[in-house]
Amino acid sequence: TLLQTPNQILQWEFQTLPASKPSLPLRMLKYWVRLKEKYDCPIEQVVIFLKSTRSEKVYTNQLVDTNTSHRYRVIRLWEQDPEQFLANPALLPFATLAFSESPTRLLEQVAAAVDRIEEPLAFTNISACTQLLAGLRFHQRLITELFPEEVMQESVIYQKIIQKGHKLGLLEGKLEGRQEEGYSIVRRLITRRFGSVSDQLLEGIQKLSVAQLEELSEALLDFETVTDIAVWLASHQQ
């Protein structure tokens, strides 16, 4: 989520778990460089971890490598005081994931706060978002007991998810064709830039996903030799 003001950019990165490829610290550095190049203003980066985990990666807030150092802020929701979220209707969905010695009691408090929202559209959408995030922590049965199911179905958030589900069935059928098309485009770019390359390298590229092929097609603009392709490929096949 990117919020731009006249003098600053605030980037929020939401993560359920710390798994990331490339690593989250490297991603945050890449985002910072791109934003700095485009807007040339102060940039504040915040990573918000939603789901409780014991992984040491959620305590990492910087990238340090040779002569490069980049820091960003990390918020672990399960360590946060829920009162700051309960006080603001727009933040109620995050309250479900905040610290509590009695999580069930906390969810009951959130449900009661949502029920007090008078504006109909805000009520349905905040209720839907609250249920979605609560699903990261609570059993569906408990959520259904505290939140009316029909409210969820009326929400534009819920409807958008349903629409995506319908589209997914269509997209899966097209995915294979997109992968073949992406591979063909990347291969033509490589041939035009570097001439012929080894079959082994092409086989590795052919195994990439559509998203990886798109990423490689952009990265090729910065590559100077075939070795750069091999190095990139090795880093994306681990």
Rank of each mutant, 00 (worst) to 15 (best):
T104S: 09
F99M: 12
A112V: 11
N125I: 02
W78H: 15
L121K: 07
V110M: 02
R116F: 02
C129S: 12
R76F: 10
L77G: 08
E145Y: 02
E119S: 04
L91M: 12
L146M: 13
Q80Y: 04
W78K: 14
S69V: 13
P120T: 00
R141F: 03
T144N: 10
A90L: 14
L86A: 04
L91I: 08
R141V: 10
T96A: 08
F147L: 11
L91Q: 09
A95L: 09
L132C: 08
L142M: 11
Q62F: 04
P93M: 05
A98Y: 06
Q140G: 05
S102H: 13
D115P: 15
F99L: 13
D65W: 14
A134M: 06
T96F: 01
E83V: 03
L142I: 12
L106Q: 06
H139V: 07
S127W: 04
A128T: 09
Q62D: 02
F123H: 15
P89T: 05
E150Y: 14
P103Q: 14
L63G: 06
F99H: 12
A112T: 12
E118F: 07
V110W: 00
A98I: 09
Q140L: 11
T144F: 05
T130R: 05
F85Y: 15
V64C: 01
L97E: 08
L107M: 11
L142C: 03
L91C: 09
W78P: 14
Y72K: 06
Q84G: 03
R116L: 10
T66Y: 10
F99I: 02
S127I: 00
Q140C: 04
L86Q: 09
I117T: 01
V64T: 08
L132Q: 07
